[in-house]
């Protein structure tokens, strides 16, 4: 079975934020919810690298483990999704997540913290594929349409790769072999307890 992963090639990422707005535009994500974001490390210094980060769809997802209502599940493609019907907005997934992926509407308003929202790998949610309900709760379901996440598809420099784990790793490996450098598969060790070895 395929295993879907993201890999951000930081030697290509230029912090153009296309992934961020592509995501927002595709799923109509409201202000303040950032399913994907780009962080720049060592900003302004030689060695500066930007990395686009969203839910990494971990192999052993900590969010799922700590969820008090077990609202998470993994699809056959190993995409980590959750049910907003079951989610109670407790925020535990945010404490557990190494990548800051879970987002909460009105995070700081007393008592009214909403249902968690996060990157779905453009794979919708537990509702009927491509239904209106699914779109409204989770955004579009590109995987069901036979497409890949739009953030990766639209990445300006093709830094953000999405697809089957082996394929993505191969692409990255070949890049590194050709060019002779690579700052690593950011987040992979944490998410998958493995990395792309070259």
């Amino acid at each position: 079975m395929a295993r879907m992963k993201f890999l951000c090639d930081a030697d290509r990422c230029i912090e153009c934020n296309a992934c961020v707005t592509a995501c927002k535009n595709e799923h109509d994500v409201p202000w303040g919810i950032n399913r994907r974001r780009v962080v720049t490390i060592n900003d302004g210094k030689p060695g500066e690298r930007s990395v686009s980060m969203a839910c990494m769809h971990c192999t052993d997802p900590p969010c799922a483990a700590v969820c008090p209502v077990n609202c998470f599940y993994q699809t056959a493609d190993a995409v980590v999704l959750h049910s907003k019907e079951i989610c109670i907005g407790c925020g535990y997934c945010f404490y557990a997540c190494p990548f800051g992926a879970p987002q909460f509407p009105k995070l700081s308003n007393f008592g009214s913290r909403g249902k968690m929202d996060k990157c779905t790998y453009c794979a919708g949610g537990p509702d009927v594929d491509l239904s209106l309900k699914e779109y409204e709760r989770y955004g579009s379901n590109r995987l069901a349409e036979g497409k890949l996440p739009l953030c990766a598809e639209m990445c300006s420099t093709k830094a953000l790769l999405a697809g089957d784990s082996d394929m993505v790793a191969d692409i990255y490996k070949q890049r590194v072999m050709v060019r002779g450098y690579g700052s690593g598969a950011w987040g992979w060790r944490t998410a998958y307890r493995e990395t792309v070895t070259i």
């Binding site: 491509l130 209106l132 995987l143 036979g146 697809g163």
Partner: peptide
């Protein structure tokens, strides 16, 4: 719903569940 949008998809990645 799906029918119109799904025709746009061109991904033939075996791993991805079909529409």
């Amino acid at each position: 719903a799906a029918a119109g949008l799904s025709t746009l998809g061109t991904l033939t990645l075996g791993a991805v569940q079909r529409a």
